[in-house]
């Protein structure tokens, strides 16, 4: 009997081969609760129906001015992170898959992020990058949670691990160019992730990824948060400043408290 189940093996291999997994969320009520909270923070009232809620998110660009967007986003992030249940729910939403990819004793980013990308907005883009290029530990994974269906440029893109290795092997050639030129060199090799509301994406942030101007007719809403094994190496995103252990196991607590008896002569 193998130590790793067939299901875990399948998910792990998919993650290693593609650089990411997209899985169905079994606790969708928690995502819905976060969506309701966002709606409430902005509108100061509850949505009248499920249609009202979904329409609000997809057509958010029709309800605001672009100049208001950043202030709304920053305010939402602050208010969501002030609610302890949001981070707890975020972990719970992805836990069954994090258990397989990262482990069941994890450090979680102290704050959950929110992206809002309205159609044709080029002011809130994340150009091609890998988080590890700016100091993240390669042991970190990103849990990316769409609050709406995401497809084509309404979604994010990622390079495959194989193409990433090719890019890394010739990285020295690209030191003099900017990230847009770098994107142009690999644009026919990136995958825009097709993911529906009700699914969750976990990806390897060491692989180049980013987003483009949203050319669809709907607003993209997504959240993201990083996770890593508690005792794996930390990068520039440090313990305390950026990560905290959220579910230390008894054996770890036991080990960390252990003190060898001191032998001294009377």
């Amino acid at each position: 009997m193998p130590f790793i189940s067939e299901e875990e093996s399948k998910v792990s291999n998919q993650f290693l081969n593609d650089g990411y997994i997209v899985q169905s969320i079994n606790k969708l009520q928690l995502v819905k609760k976060i969506k309701y909270e966002i709606y409430y923070i902005i509108n100061q009232k509850k949505p009248e129906s499920e249609f009202d809620l979904n329409d609000f998110f997809d057509n958010f660009h029709k309800k605001i001015e672009l100049s208001e967007l950043n202030e709304i986003r920053v305010d939402l992030i602050a208010k969501l992170n002030a609610l302890s249940w949001v981070r707890e729910s975020y972990y719970e939403i992805a836990k069954e898959y994090l258990d397989l990819i990262v482990g069941n004793e994890v450090s979680m980013q102290l704050r959950v992020n929110l992206s809002i990308q309205i159609p044709n907005d080029d002011s809130s883009l994340l150009p091609l990058h890998s988080d590890t290029w700016s100091g993240d530990s390669p042991f970190e994974c990103v849990v990316w949670l769409p609050l709406v269906d995401c497809y084509e440029t309404k979604s994010m893109y990622i390079l495959s691990p194989e193409e990433s290795r090719k890019l890394y092997s010739s990285f020295g050639e690209y030191m003099e160019i900017d990230s847009e030129e770098l994107f142009n060199k690999i644009q026919n090799k990136v995958n825009f992730i097709n993911i529906k509301y009700g699914q969750v994406l976990i990806f390897d942030q060491g692989i180049p990824h980013g987003n483009r101007v949203n050319k669809t007719k709907e607003t993209r809403w997504s959240m993201n948060c990083r996770f890593k094994g508690v005792f794996t190496p930390y990068g520039d995103k440090k313990l305390g400043e950026f990560f905290e252990p959220i579910n230390l196991k008894a054996a770890s607590k036991m080990g960390m408290k252990y003190q060898q008896p001191k032998i001294s002569k009377k």
Binding site: V230, F231, P233, Y234, D236, K237, P245, L248
Partner: peptide, 19 residues
């Protein structure tokens, strides 16, 4: 506790500092 323990874990990735 984790900070003080992680100091004893291997720093296996070149260029990374432990948290």
């Amino acid at each position: 506790d984790v900070k003080q323990t992680i100091e004893n874990c291997p720093k296996i990735v070149e260029g990374l500092s432990n948290g």
